[in-house]
Structure formats: structure tokens, C-alpha cells
Design a protein around this nucleic acid. Structure first.
Lengths: 185, 185
DNA sequence: CTCTCATGTCAACAGCTGTTGGCCAACAAT
DNA sequence: ATTGTTGGCCAACAGCTGTTGACATGAGAG
């Protein structure tokens, strides 16, 4: 029986607007005034509900990769499964900008970088450990993350033409062999 | 016989300080006042010599990857050669921050992103075309760039522990097979 | 109706930003 | 010695930033 406060609506509107701005322009270029305007409320409400710009940012950084149980995936399909999952995650729900927020901000903001490392340590590394065993997991997961983040970087943030233009399925076919080589060790 | 103006010294001091700041903190967090303080001159001098913060930034973005003639490299050694070249390029001369400036800023600054695409189109893609032929060059170069930039991202910007801790030679051994798979197509 | 508290607005603050123009000192050429 | 030019500093501007506190308004409980 959670008491439904009317303000929850406003609060989520702010968070939604904040995610959009942070995802599109990064931490420093995003102003509280702009977020408030998007949410159609006064800037001071942002402070009341989130305390400060930093805390608002922190709330916008919540990310769940929703990785499936990789231990249940046949080794041969592992590379393609990984690429496909992340491509879908990036391109799936346009309203779910959390991943973009994290990556874009982590490059210039230490707070976001720390969160990135945390997501890696608590979500990526363990998931991969279930598939290839704990010994090689850390190192291999690092290299896998490098390749997947490299894809996201060049496709969604830099928009390198050859990478940005590729249809999703070509991405899977193009990167899966490379991932396979890394996973094989 | 270029007349050696005394101000050239100051100008390069400014550019050097600007590169350091841009590389460490990105475009928006870098202030002209801080750059001027590092160069031990007045902020207004920065304006006089470079016109504006944007133009100073533009000057700091000049990058030469110094890629060797990849057509002369045996196909088998191509992957390792590429990884080694870039790792050395990143870690070689600490005073040469241009690469870091470019990558760090390109994520939140469209001007830098455009420069990144330009560097890719004029330096990376042609160099690779010399090694694997022009037909597959663009697409393959894109995927190669994704992997190499992914490495730089996770190692130098995000500092993901497993990637940042790897000795350079392990990076080469770890990523070369993946690159080989991509190059093989 | 009245009291109360949650929800929201308004105006202002202090600080930092890029940028500008006026002024000063040193030096080279006449 | 006088002039013009170059290299440099200082003080100030207008704009935007995060943040704050005082004040209005609405609804719901007694």
C-alpha cells in the first residue's frame, strides 16, 4: 500500500527530462533550467526533489543491462548473443536513455566513470564468469567490454559513417567472429 | 627564413597548456582562465592569439596518427602491428595529448566528433585500403576503429580495471586475434 | 469552515564564464 | 630622441550557472 503522492508524477517527469538531456548533451552541457523547462516546472522543484544537480545525475545513472543467463547459452552462440543483446539494448526503447547517459558522461565525469566500472564489475563480469569460468573471466570480460563499448562509441556517439550505417544484423555478423576470437583466448 | 617572433614561444605555451587541460577534462570543463594560468600569462592573451575558445580548441585538435604503410606489412602481422602502433601512440609521448583530446571531447562536442570522422576518413580508412583493398576497406576500417577506440576508451578514459592493468604486450596478444577475425571478414 | 501541509512559483544571490577595450612597458627603426 | 609596433596586464562587461528562501495556492482532514 504505497501512498500515491501526486508529486511522484512530477518527480518522474523531471527524471525523464533529465535523462534525455544528459543522454544528448552530457553532464556539463545539461542545465537544471533546461531540464525544468522540459518537465514544465520551476527549476527550484528540481532542487527540492533531488537535492542537487549531482544527485539528479546520480539518479539518472541507474542502469540494468538485463543480461540473460550466459551459462545457459551454447558456447557457439555466445558471441552473436552478446552483440545482439547489446544492440537491441541500445536501439530498443528510445525512451530508455540510461545506457547513453552513462557512456556519454563517463568520458568526462568521474562520478559516471565510477558507475561504469561498477556496472562492469557487478553485471558484465559475473555474467561472463557463468559462461567461461571465473579464472579467465575478469580479463576476458574486459576485452569483451572494450569491443562492445567501442561499437557503441563509434556507432551512437561518434557516428562514424561505416559503422553507423550498418544494419543491426550486419553488426552482429561483423563483430561476432572478433568476439569469438577473444572468448576463445 | 621565417622571422622568429618572440610571441611564438607564448603561443606554443598556451597551446601546450590547452592540450593538457582539454585532454584531462574535456572541452566544457576547460576554462580559458585555467589555461592562461598554466601558461603563466593573462587570459586575454589567449583571445589575442587564438581568437576564441572554439578556435583554440580547433588548434588543439590537430592529430596525425603517423600510420605506417600498411601495404608493406605482411597480412599475418597486420593485426598485431595495428594494436602495437596505437598502444605506443597512446602511451608513447605523454606530452602529445592530441589523441586524448580528440577522443575525450568527441563524445560531448560535435566539433570534435566531426574532426574524429575526418581523421578516420583521411588517415585510417586509406591506410587500411592499402592493405586489404578498397572494396571492403570502409566497412572493415569501421569495425577495426571500433575495436581500437574501444580499447582506448576502456583503458585510458574509463580505466576499467582489467583493461587498464594489462601490460602493453598482453593487450597486443589479447586483441590481435579479434582484429584478425575482423580483417579476415 | 478552518487548519495544515504538500505542491508549486518568483525573485534574487553569488560565482564563474567567455570576451572586450584601454592602458603600460619594452624594443626597433627612423 | 621620437616614433611605431609588439607583447603583455588589468579591470570590467554581460550572460549563464547552481542554489536558496520567501511567498502563493491548492486540496484534504478535523
Amino acid at each position: 500500500m504505497t501512498t500515491p503522492r501526486r508529486s511522484d508524477q512530477t518527480k518522474t517527469a523531471i527524471l525523464r527530462a533529465a535523462r534525455e538531456r544528459f543522454a544528448a548533451h552530457g553532464y556539463e552541457r545539461t542545465t537544471i533550467r533546461a531540464v525544468a523547462a522540459d518537465a514544465e516546472i520551476d527549476p527550484s522543484m528540481v532542487m527540492r526533489y533531488f537535492g542537487s544537480k549531482e544527485q539528479l545525475f546520480d539518479a539518472a545513472l541507474a542502469v540494468d543491462l538485463r543480461l540473460p543467463d550466459l551459462g545457459a547459452v551454447p558456447a557457439r552462440q555466445l558471441p552473436a548473443t552478446l552483440v545482439r543483446h547489446f544492440v537491441e539494448r541500445w536501439e530498443g526503447d528510445p525512451a530508455d536513455d540510461a545506457l547513453l547517459v552513462l557512456l556519454r558522461s563517463a568520458v568526462t565525469n568521474e562520478q559516471a566513470a565510477a558507475r561504469m566500472r561498477e556496472v562492469f564489475a557487478t553485471q558484465v563480469a559475473p555474467a561472463l564468469a557463468a559462461a567461461i569460468g571465473p579464472e579467465r573471466a575478469a580479463r576476458t570480460a574486459g576485452l569483451v567490454a572494450a569491443q562492445l563499448l567501442g561499437l557503441a562509441l563509434t556507432r551512437y556517439l561518434l557516428a562514424l559513417p561505416p559503422v553507423a550505417a550498418l544494419p543491426p544484423e550486419d553488426l552482429v555478423n561483423g563483430l561476432a567472429p572478433a568476439l569469438a576470437a577473444t572468448l576463445a583466448g
